[in-house]
Amino acid sequence: MSLARQGAAMTPDEVAAFRAHPLAGAAIAVRRAGEAAKVVGREVPGLPTWAPRLRAYAGQALGSPSDGSPIERDF
């Protein structure tokens, strides 16, 4: 049901393109953590654990330095 709501499974070409992306591993780690957090009663690390990692990933995706400086963009 969830996969259908998300637009169906990726094609082999889409899978290959995703795997080739430099942040594919990061995206998978975040997705797995999100899914694990949905298990009722399961204790998972809080936002302070994930915030530095998410900032680093966002900085890489946006081309910002990974030195912790703020990301400043006009969107």
Rank of each mutant, 00 (worst) to 15 (best):
S2W: 10
S2G: 10
S2M: 10
S2D: 10
L3C: 09
L3Q: 12
A4P: 06
A4C: 08
R5P: 09
R5A: 11
Q6K: 01
Q6M: 06
Q6Y: 05
G7R: 01
A8N: 11
A8C: 09
A9S: 13
A9V: 11
A9G: 13
M10G: 11
M10C: 12
M10T: 11
T11D: 00
T11W: 02
P12K: 07
D13V: 13
D13H: 12
D13Y: 10
E14T: 06
E14W: 04
V15H: 08
V15R: 08
A16L: 07
A16P: 05
A16E: 15
A16Q: 11
A17W: 06
A17Q: 14
A17R: 14
F18Q: 12
F18Y: 14
F18I: 11
F18W: 12
R19V: 13
A20P: 02
A20D: 13
P22S: 14
P22E: 14
P22T: 14
L23K: 01
L23P: 06
L23Q: 13
A24V: 07
A24C: 10
G25V: 00
G25P: 01
G25F: 01
G25W: 01
G25Q: 03
G25Y: 01
A26G: 12
A26W: 09
A27N: 04
A27I: 04
A27T: 03
I28N: 05
A29C: 00
V30H: 03
R32E: 15
A33L: 05
E35M: 09
E35W: 05
E35P: 00
A36R: 10
A36S: 12
A36P: 02
A37T: 06
K38I: 07
K38G: 11
V39D: 00
V39T: 04
V39H: 02
V40Q: 12
R42Y: 02
R42W: 00
R42T: 00
R42F: 03
E43V: 08
E43A: 11
E43Q: 14
E43Y: 05
E43N: 07
V44H: 08
V44R: 12
V44I: 14
V44S: 13
P45F: 00
P48W: 00
P48I: 03
T49S: 10
T49L: 05
T49K: 04
T49V: 13
T49P: 02
W50C: 04
W50S: 03
A51R: 15
A51Q: 15
A51D: 14
P52R: 02
P52W: 04
P52G: 05
L54I: 11
L54S: 03
L54Q: 03
R55A: 15
R55P: 03
R55L: 15
A56D: 10
A56H: 01
A56G: 04
A56L: 06
A58M: 06
A58F: 01
A58Q: 04
G59W: 03
G59C: 07
Q60I: 03
Q60E: 15
Q60R: 15
Q60A: 11
A61P: 05
A61C: 08
A61V: 09
A61L: 15
A61Y: 07
L62Q: 08
L62E: 11
G63C: 12
G63M: 10
S64V: 12
S64D: 13
S64I: 08
P65M: 13
P65W: 10
S66Q: 15
D67Q: 06
D67M: 04
S69C: 05
S69L: 00
I71R: 07
E72D: 14
E72W: 07
D74W: 08
D74N: 12
D74Y: 08
D74G: 08
